[in-house]
């Protein structure tokens, strides 16, 4: 095939989603954020939600998410995204409102906001990137850091007697009456990406249908923080993270 034939529109099988900005992200090469951003941008377009979505960005690596996905955004204070989203959705019930948060933002400083928004059954979707580490600030321990895992603040590995145990926030949220959908996914293989996309689609639908709070936890890699190559990170995640954070739906009403 000649180059001209290859670039014929009918042969196109893959392209940048329309709602994903054409700019270089600040994410590290190999980071899971890029994949999840892409899924969200695809879904907002496919679901026709471009004009009535307000997303809430966290403090953490995804703090600049608003620079990459072309919908309205609010940048929340650290951990407060579910509170910000609560007001956005209650005051504009016709909109899709979702938060995009990391494990430090959601499961450390923002635990109260997360649990209470979910317990009130706010009609929002929470996209939760769990890579077991603080990426933005340089690789410190998160509540989700595995035991034994070395971070900037657990240089000899996380110890239960000093630092407590890896927090499974989805397991806390699933029993709440306010949640309608709690699932744990990953984006390390094409099959996993497809499942995550289906999960986020469902979460967005739930938000629009007013069914309650949906939580999509995405177990992710932080190859910079973990100090591994992207490929090695994916292997390590499957080998170690999935044992503590098993894949699949915890709740699906």
């Amino acid at each position: 095939m000649s180059a001209e034939e290859i670039i014929k529109p009918e042969n196109k099988v893959y392209s940048r989603p329309r709602l994903l900005d054409e700019r270089v992200t600040h994410y590290c090469p190999g980071c899971s954020h890029g994949v999840v951003h892409r899924i969200i941008a695809e879904l907002l377009d496919e679901m026709g939600l471009e004009d009535n979505t307000v997303a809430v960005a966290p403090v953490g690596c995804a703090v600049f998410a608003y620079n990459y996905i072309d919908v309205d955004w609010v940048e929340a204070a650290h951990g407060r995204a579910p509170a910000v989203a609560t007001a956005l959705k209650r005051l504009n019930p016709g909109n899709l409102v979702f938060t995009y948060q990391g494990d430090g933002d959601l499961s450390a400083i923002g635990t109260a906001e997360t649990i209470h928004a979910a317990n009130r059954g706010e009609n929002i979707a929470i996209i939760f990137i769990n890579n077991g580490i603080y990426g933005m600030t340089g690789g410190q321990m998160a509540p989700t850091t595995l035991l034994g895992m070395k971070t900037a603040t657990t240089p000899y590995g996380r110890r239960a007697d000093l630092n407590g145990y890896p927090l499974r926030i989805s397991e806390l949220l699933a029993p709440l009456d306010g949640t309608c959908y709690v699932t744990r996914q990953a984006v390390h293989t094409p099959a996993a990406v497809r499942k995550t996309k289906a999960a986020i689609r469902k979460a967005f639908q739930n938000s629009m249908e007013g069914k309650g709070t949906s939580v999509v936890e995405i177990v992710s890699t932080c190859n910079s923080g973990w100090k591994m190559s992207p490929a090695k990170s994916n292997e390590w995640m499957a080998e170690h993270m999935f044992e503590r954070y098993p894949m699949g739906d915890l709740k699906n009403i």
Partner: peptide, 16 residues
Amino acid sequence: ESEVAAINMVYGGAAS
């Protein structure tokens, strides 16, 4: 659930 949440709800509502 707290004054912290309340003011951040104000922030979200005001943003819209």
